[in-house]
Design a protein around this nucleic acid. Structure first.
Lengths: 217, 217
DNA sequence: TAGATTGTTAATCGATTAACAATC
DNA sequence: TAGATTGTTAATCGATTAACAATC
């Protein structure tokens, strides 16, 4: 097929494919069908074929997909065939946890700078990175070719930090604060707000015995 | 309207509404329209009205929604008008960060137990909770009326931990590991996998100058 | 009364799934 | 050749948005 505008849902599935393909590759599986992928990832095989076909003819009829080839292709599509530098703002607990997480590393995503607004934190070491003050943000973004910012500050600060990230020339933001950020349209924002996930989970619990009123189930 | 099966998309927006309503409440705003909500939350006002109307007639024509009343209603719908106990499995960096996060507390979600499989971690203190060994999981779940489990173990362990959580009688899981878990249909699973968010973010970056081939944009 | 805003139906839009010819 | 599996079109399903009568 090629081209058309690709929906966000499709793009979000690509990393999921990539992850499982990497696992297959490690197990030295060389070929996989949309059927098998679907089974493992709880997705419809037709959907997987369609998703991939947006970007090219990666499979072989009667055979399936070559695992290594598909990995390479998806990495290229996601633009992680080159290293992408990331800045983390907010050296609290969560920020700390994320900067330790080396999971992105094998995916060519690297946190190369950490910032915090809180005086006492500045200069402390996080995982071989020195926490920098916010006024060094712009310079670092330029110098280190940082393209993505991760926000792990309290929600009251999040918009302010986002503004500064935008100002400094960042292209995309991963926001962990539970706030809807207002940014210019050319900035891409993804929400990684697990409180939403957690609260919505409660909805699906069975009604407790101590629940008088209606049971809408 | 009332009833019908409610889509997941709707349920996921409820905590978002709730959060902003709480903010309004704090600012002593007593009434809000779907228009205003939509503006702030980047959502279509019609969608907001429709979402809320699934659960009852909460608004007043010509007036809007009473903030406190709507908060109360949404909290009831989400079943967080009662305290919900949560277990956290995986006392690593991320688990640590999450257990500190008291954000859920005001939403009646409370982490009441922490578990880890790794010997040396057991018995250490995390935020006033003692890390327990996995073999105490079932007992704690029963005793403390734990209904949700949060998984923050490495992906290689995630499925195994999920199985144990299910076994112990948990009803829902928030999974931070980058794996698709296989569980019985009555278990509700939400994914809080930020690596997916981060990788898909890269797709939307401008093509670097060093990108020869096609530019699919 | 005039203006505002809900709840709800109808219209639109988009995403998922089924089906199948092409072909390895 | 027979069996498997892709890429793609058509059918279905579901979610979002527009429009408006009801009414505060």
């Amino acid at each position: 097929m090629k081209s058309d505008k690709i929906s966000e849902a499709v793009v979000r599935r690509l990393p999921v494919y990539l992850r499982y393909l990497s696992e297959l590759s490690q197990r030295e599986v060389t070929t996989v069908s949309s059927q098998e992928l679907g089974l493992r990832l709880d997705l419809n095989p037709a959907q997987i074929r369609k998703d991939l076909a947006y970007f090219g003819d990666f499979g072989r009829k009667g055979i399936g997909y070559d695992v290594s080839y598909l990995i390479e292709k998806i990495r290229h599509i996601l633009k992680i065939d080159q290293q992408i530098n990331v800045a983390l703002v907010g050296a609290g607990n969560l920020g700390h946890a994320l900067s330790n997480y080396n999971a992105y590393l094998k995916d060519n995503m690297k946190i190369v700078a950490v910032f915090d607004a809180y005086g006492p934190k500045i200069g402390t070491q996080i995982n071989s990175l020195k926490v920098q003050p916010m006024n060094e943000l712009s310079e670092s973004v330029q110098k280190d070719n940082i393209r993505i910012g991760i926000i792990t500050v309290p929600d009251t600060e999040a918009q302010n930090v986002a503004d500064q990230l935008v100002e400094s020339g960042i292209e995309a933001i991963l926001n962990f604060a539970p706030t809807i950020l207002k940014t210019p349209p050319h900035i891409r924002i993804h929400h990684a707000d697990f409180t939403t996930d957690l609260l919505s989970l409660a909805y699906y619990l069975e009604n407790g015995k101590d629940d008088e009123e209606d049971d809408d189930k």
